[in-house]
Design a protein around this nucleic acid. Sequence first.
DNA 1: TGGTATGATTACGC
DNA 2: GCGTAATCATACCA
Length: 345
Amino acid sequence: MRGLSIRGAQEEDPPDPQLMRLDNMLLAEGVSGPEKGGGSAAAAAAAAASGGTADNSIEHSDYRAKLTQIRQIYHTELEKYEQACNEFTTHVMNLLREQSRTRPISPKEIERMVGIIHRKFSSIQMQLKQSTCEAVMILRSRFLDARRKRRNFSKQATEILNEYFYSHLSNPYPSEEAKEELAKKCSITVSQVSNWFGNKRIRYKKNIGKFQEEANLYAAKTAVTAAHAVAAAVQNNQTNSPTTPNSGSSGSFNLPNSGDMYMNMQSLNGDSYQGSQVGANVQSQVDTLRHVINQTGGYNDGLGGNSLYSPHNLNANGGWQDATTPSSVTSPTEGPGSVHSDTSN
DNA sequence: TGGTATGATTACGC
DNA sequence: GCGTAATCATACCA
């Protein structure tokens, strides 16, 4: 019996801070307390810490499964200990009862014995809690370590990001709202969107030639949808109104599939960026592209030689902002060095 | 299996 | 806090 005396045996009735810590952690991790999807909150937290995404659902489920396992083991062990504690207590009580035939045993003595037994078992319980916490920590660290185990984004996500990038090549700095929107669309996190744009800008700048084809491809894509929109708009104009609302600099530049191919520009860029400049910018691109499309009926020739998207927006330093600020294009955000001030807080 | 692509991290500047 | 640049680590592909 004395061998069982481990640390924790010194604990008295007042709640032991260490035990409280363990309890809190187990509760927070969803190991103890009411079952709530096997600690999905903890999984989410870990996922957030790892920049996790919906793509991480595999890891999530893996994490959850392991956590559930831990939880189950913890509860069965806990139950076992409680049962053993009760059994042992009754066993000791029986012994004492038997002994009471031969010698007088005071209730105080019985109480003391029960107290000792309970303390022993609670120290064992504490050990159980401790090792459970350790298991959770290990699981968690393993889960977090896996953050470098990257997974490529889905094709669709990459497409969405590329489309945004190339259609905003003059200023590929999505605002916070745009990032959020893109993140939602791509089922990734905002920080992943930021990472993606960071990587993309750098890699594009470093090797524009390599990306030319890709740029053209997306430009052509834009053009196709834009052309459709233009055609629709033209048709609309012919049937509806003799005026030309889209020719000027009005904010109602009606190219829903070009300027805001993926989402509404207003919702993306917040406020100031949907007006004439975007319209003009997109319009010029559309004109070029329409020409190319007319020429080829496809994209082949027109794309190779003709740079639909030339690196003209990059300045000598490789920055984007100089190319955009002077006249034709003002940015939704401001470009490197001064980010997101338009959507500022 | 080696080269390339790509997402994430880090260091640094503003 | 965001951006760039360099780098790491892994996925992907011929």
